[in-house]
Design a protein around this nucleic acid. Sequence first.
DNA 1: AATATCCCCAACCGCCGCTCT
DNA 2: GAGAGCGGCGGTTGGGGATAT
Length: 295
Amino acid sequence: MAANFSTSVVRSNVNFHDDEEEEENENGVLIHDDEDELRRGPWTLDEDKLLVHYISCHGDRRWNHLAKSSGLKRTGKSCRLRWLNYLKPDVKRGNLTIEEQILIIQLQSKLGNRWSRIAKHLPGRTDNEIKNYWRTRVQKQERQRLKFDSNNMPAPFPDHAMGCFAPRITVDIMGDNCMTNNGGQAFTSNTAECTSATSSSVLNSTLSISTIFGDTSEHYKTQTTSNGVAEHDINDYAFPTALDCNYQMINDCGNVYDYMDALINLGSSISGCCHITEDNSLLDKQMAKNGLWKR
DNA sequence: AATATCCCCAACCGCCGCTCT
DNA sequence: GAGAGCGGCGGTTGGGGATAT
């Protein structure tokens, strides 16, 4: 990967005098005086340095002017994209966290494919990154569906949930409750919906579930609150906690799906609504009818 | 080890709406 | 009001690394 460098480093290191046919403008930045074709494709380290240097001096506005006067043989659009998606200092690198993934799903259900709006809720994440994330996941699910179709097997999830490019779910955070991870640590998002963590302590208990699919050897793990208020009817269902990505779901074909994949598809198949309950579990009986959650 | 396939993601494209002249 | 220029956005592509066969 290129360049996570500070502006000061760029200023001190960049060497603009590597081409005899270039000349400096009034700001000490080189201008190409030939009419070479615009460059396309991946940016080089030197181009990155030049762009960062120019923006540090002149700001990130007037992209077409910037592209010409900076000496970059790039379009203004290309410069803007490179800056916003990669070079801007506050761009966060690395994999999306589970919290970010859930927030994306939540926001996508509300906003649709308005990636730039969604990105505003995830500091440091770009619309391009979120768009790529969403597309990759949905493509994966579509491939799964086609695989089942070609094998003449029933789809793991209802067709209407699998076939659309933008499956919609709503994760409702009920009342004062907040999604928590297994340690009971509050999941804090940038949305206003999630404002406070539940105070009830969460006790893990391992329960043997032998119903529905008749597999008595499997152990499914669910959670109950200390006061037992939200205890599940374990004879019928088992639920994972919202952020426990170690869970997988097994449908009635015996196929196993990762937590997030199942969440997206089940959410689509239950009229766009699943709930976070008092014990921070996803609770909807229709969800459970699609299969068991396996740890 | 070679080849095929999958997956990620940077970058491009086309369209739309806003602003300025 | 018309049109050019531009920024912003969402959809798409293609290169390259990772993984499977």
